[in-house]
Amino acid sequence: MLELRLVQGSLLKKVLESIKDLVNDANFDFSSSGFSLQSMDSSHVALVALLLKSEGFEHYRCDRNTSMGMNLGNMSKMLKCAGNDDIITIKGDDGSDTVTFMFESPTQDKIADFEMKLMDIDSEHLGIPEAEYHAIVKMPSAEFARICKDLASIGDTVVISVTKEGVKFSTRGDIGTANIVLRQNTTVDKPEDATVIEMNEPVSMTFALRYMNSFTKATPLSNTVTISMSPDLPVVVEYKIAEMGYVRFYLAPKMEE
């Protein structure tokens, strides 16, 4: 028996919107402490890791660990039928080949349930070790989205370089080049507007902008984004979900030929 009631249902809608274009289908792993998902895109270049902890739910019941394979496009279609203020409940029964999403309006005058077929998914799980990163940049998520969108109109790849001077995003394309430098800026009115650079060693890496732009679909989940880089590791782009968990995107770098 599985029953999870999320008062802030819009959060689940936002999570799905942030990952459904990167990953077609995925296993949702439910346990008593919360639920998680890990899935690579079809080219094995990017990976999404989602965690939503049980504490963030108004009601959370998971009698035994269970994994449910869901098509994220279909799940997104169903969650789009929930209002932004709706309470969303996910229900499942042991051995069933369906999952039910229940949507309740805040005034309880409209209650809908949508039953979705589950699917068998051969998931390839990767072990992601804890790592010490050379540089960690925390910045406003909207600023990061703006930079990725702007650079993608000039080139296909972005070089992200972190030095003690700041973080530089560079691209080049047929029409020319672009460089955007952000300096550490902690003298802001609101902490979420700060750019904070933690650097142990300078690092410079190249990534495909197409993926970075896909990750920025998670912008509505968090005011800030954290970018962690080490030369011998995929970059981690993390959007924290307040009080509940995170959506992390891992992206393999491009290497010099």
Partner: peptide, 14 residues
């Protein structure tokens, strides 16, 4: 512009 690497180079399959 460099060759694209893949994640299984960096992370092992479980």
């Amino acid at each position: 512009l460099g060759s694209q690497t893949v994640l299984p180079i960096y992370f092992r399959h479980l």
